[in-house]
């Protein structure tokens, strides 16, 4: 079974995204900020296929998380998708430059997540 991680400081968002991904057949783990997510990634990393990550979070934000992940060749195949309220075009560009593969602007719907995962080849 494919594995995904949801990183968001909002429990409600983690729940919604987690359920959505489970609905697509993913096994899902969660983290509340970038630092937690990195720790979890180092533990489970080789099994993970996909990370959905928020931008604004305490401890370590999503952009720094993406940069950290991309600096480690071990995770070069990991698909990273930002899911965030940041919608300025400069921010979208910054996320892509840092190495995010896709970008969803909140609010999202399950269809939006599905369409984006299809673009990433993460959903049939």
């Amino acid at each position: 079974m494919a594995k995904a991680m949801v990183v968001d400081d909002s429990r409600a968002i983690r729940l919604i995204l987690g359920r959505t991904l489970e609905g697509f057949g993913y096994q899902v783990c969660q983290a509340a900020n970038g630092r937690e997510a990195l720790a979890l990634l180092h533990r489970e990393g080789d099994d993970l296929n996909l990370v959905l990550v928020d931008w604004n979070m305490p401890e370590m934000n999503g952009l720094d998380f993406v940069k950290e992940v991309r600096s480690n060749p071990r995770y070069s195949k990991l698909a990273l998708m930002m899911v965030t309220t940041e919608t300025h075009i400069d921010q979208v560009c910054a996320a892509l430059e840092a190495g995010a593969n896709e970008y969803v602007m909140k609010p999202f719907t399950p269809e939006i997540i599905a369409d984006k995962l299809r673009l990433l080849g993460c959903l049939q």
Partner: peptide
């Protein structure tokens, strides 16, 4: 709308072919 560009449009095309 934001919802419409979120759907199905690769983000690379969004930043290349759209302005806010």
């Amino acid at each position: 709308s934001q919802l419409e560009v979120n759907r199905g449009l690769p983000v690379h095309y969004l930043i290349k072919y759209f302005t806010r």
